[in-house]
Design a protein around this nucleic acid. Sequence first.
DNA 1: AGCGGGCGATACCCGGCGGGTATCGATCCG
DNA 2: CGGATCGATACCCGCCGGGTATCGCCCGCT
Lengths: 282, 282
Amino acid sequence: METRELRYFVAVAEELHFGRAARRLGIAQPPLSRAIRQLERRLGVTLLERDSRRVALTAAGSVLLREGRAALDAVDAADRRTRRAGEAAHGGAGLVLVTKAGASSELLPKLLDAYAAEPDSVRVEVLLSGIGEQERLLRDGRADVALLHLPFDSITGLDTEELVTEQQVMVLPATHPLAGRAQLRMADVEALPDLPLPRWPLHDGTYPDGPGPEVRDHSQLLQLVALGRTAVVLPESCRSLLWPDMVAVPVPDAPTVTTVIAWPPHSRSRALAALVRTATRL
Amino acid sequence: METRELRYFVAVAEELHFGRAARRLGIAQPPLSRAIRQLERRLGVTLLERDSRRVALTAAGSVLLREGRAALDAVDAADRRTRRAGEAAHGGAGLVLVTKAGASSELLPKLLDAYAAEPDSVRVEVLLSGIGEQERLLRDGRADVALLHLPFDSITGLDTEELVTEQQVMVLPATHPLAGRAQLRMADVEALPDLPLPRWPLHDGTYPDGPGPEVRDHSQLLQLVALGRTAVVLPESCRSLLWPDMVAVPVPDAPTVTTVIAWPPHSRSRALAALVRTATRL
DNA sequence: AGCGGGCGATACCCGGCGGGTATCGATCCG
DNA sequence: CGGATCGATACCCGCCGGGTATCGCCCGCT
């Protein structure tokens, strides 16, 4: 099976429409139809149920969609990491670290400084991603290593080392009635009529329904808190980047947050191993 | 990047010889040379250092070897799993479970029976593999789920659930001087001049040096014990398949063994989820 | 030093396949 | 019932992946 065929199939399976898929791929519709038929013949499996009015995935088709996406990510990763390894020989970045924008604001600079001080450390590029994008970036090779936060991020399929565990605090505008309390309970947090909790994107990029604002990363979030539009429970290390008119109130019964360093399991390069070692020693 | 190019590159990188690699691939040498050059030009990276006497990998080349193997495994997995999903629609096996030959002899039949009794369970094919082959089988799609044994097997990059934890026992011929002891210590086990411990294959399939016999799976192992050629420390559940002239002596200070059920993280099908759920309930 | 052999690169040719356009046939809608 | 939509089919072309022949280089043998 060639990656071209996989790309074609994934496009059709996502669009469920040969014409649109062909346009997206930049080819005409007939070669696309033919390619899918050839793929089906070679696999000996019908992947798509098509009548001239609609296209639907078979059970085998959804298997190939899932597995094919993973395979294409792996191929993309091979491409990108090889290119970067080539550039690195001429002074480019050696490692790409991804973290949620606005998270781990205390840990990250310490880690980067400590690693830079190590003997034969390589340049580390920092990539700030939206919530929930990190796993994809690691899998398709745009990043080599990530800082993730349990229990929010999924670490399935990744190797990890735990770094720090923190209590959480609620971040509020200083003018809010609850701002003076010594501590809060989750029950207090969950239904504030005046300050609805923000909504994070789900795994597929869409947002759940609800009253709160849609949020992509922590920087947006803090700005919305400053504007008095929302309130949010965050790990206590976020204190260092609160704006002057915000306060943080401990929430002892909120789940603790563990920051972990994570990387794809097979890609244990020398530079990555050194970075992980540095991180666990902090 | 096409899988054909990846296969070609991996062949050359493994052989470090264009002629041999071409023979292995079933093509002539010149097209292979040309394909590698094209790949290098498209990536903008030199992958192989070649003079007319020897071929060597560059740093970027070894990155592509590692990542390319993973990508090819993922493509193979997509192919195989799709084919099987197609067959399953016509009554073929729905899941392939792999375990080390001779291990988990008590747990496995219980698991298979319990799962078969579940509503809408699918046919489970059991694949018995040699030591250390399971991870590969899961990654390239020849298996969907594995029974692994910590701390011996690596579970990096896999999702797992713990099933049972056991003490270990030493398996000896009944005639051996130590066979009558109530228990043994690891120190007793490690240097028995008359019964050298067996040697397991390393990750790359080769064996370490040493006096003991080379062993591929547990069936071989027990036969060698019965013949008085070796002795071995195994989880106590192996008692159920001891031959009459063998005894098992507890070794309390040997590491405990945890049996886990493991599967590739992205492939959480309905049938797989049901099997995992059944396993954790046993 | 000279020569032969091994090995990758180059030159050149052919056939198949991936891409295109034109058109058909089925199905749904007004 | 006619037109629109959409996938399938028919057919053609050019490129690229495959082949053979040969070159050029370097090493080792005598």
